[in-house]
């Protein structure tokens, strides 16, 4: 443990990890919907820093750009459009907190036990040398080109589907007024 703490990078990890967990905890407990979304920004930011620690700079950048930049904005729009109660609201959670906490504790226990006993003290190799983005790009358009295209298609389908689902059919009256404009 002492040796572990002697590495400065682990201090960074500790600070960031605690911040991430606290933010994540606030995401699921905050009684303000907007705050919850903003805490998710902090949690994902922590995750992105962890990615950088793991020398996955490109993934970290994607998380920052896509999640923090776009998805969270989407969430905020969703919150506003659904007129979710933005102030303090006790009814934001249901009354099954205790069983839910138990379940999630069990999940945590099982998952951490399983992963730690399986991978234990496996050293992470070549930490500190960023993954070459070019090799990622080659993987995307080389070996994984088909999944890549499929995922692109899924995004397109989600785009079209989102429009189709969320689009409101105008009432005849509204349609009439729109046509007259």
């Amino acid at each position: 443990m002492g040796e572990w703490l002697s590495q400065p990078v682990n201090w960074v990890y500790l600070v960031v990890g605690v911040l991430t967990l606290v933010s994540a905890f606030r995401v699921v407990t905050s009684q303000n919907v907007v705050h919850a979304a903003l805490f998710l920004v902090a949690a994902l930011g922590g995750v992105a820093v962890n990615f950088i620690l793991l020398s996955a700079e490109f993934v970290a950048l994607v998380v920052v750009l896509v999640y923090i930049g776009a998805v969270i904005v989407l969430f905020l729009f969703g919150i506003m459009i659904t007129r979710a109660p933005t102030g303090l609201d006790v009814a934001l959670d249901n009354d099954k907190k205790l069983p839910a906490a138990l379940i999630s504790l069990v999940v945590f226990a099982v998952l951490s036990y399983a992963t730690v006993t399986t991978f234990g003290n496996a050293e992470l190799v070549e930490i500190g040398t960023a993954t070459d983005t070019a090799s990622l790009a080659r993987a995307f358009i080389g070996r994984f080109v088909v999944p890549f295209e499929v995922v692109g298609f899924i995004l397109l389908a989600a785009l079209v589907g989102g429009i189709a689902i969320a689009r409101r059919d105008l009432t005849p009256l509204e349609e009439e007024s729109r046509r007259s404009v």
């Binding site: 249901n94 099954k96 069983p99 839910a100 379940i103 069990v106 999940v107 099982v110 998952l111 036990y113 399983a114």
Partner: peptide
């Protein structure tokens, strides 16, 4: 939905315990 989700998570945990641990 959330009761279903709870059942689902518990079932998954049981499977992990049985097959992995």
């Amino acid at each position: 939905v959330q009761q279903y989700a709870a059942s689902f998570v518990m079932g998954a945990i049981v499977l992990v315990i049985v097959f992995v641990l």
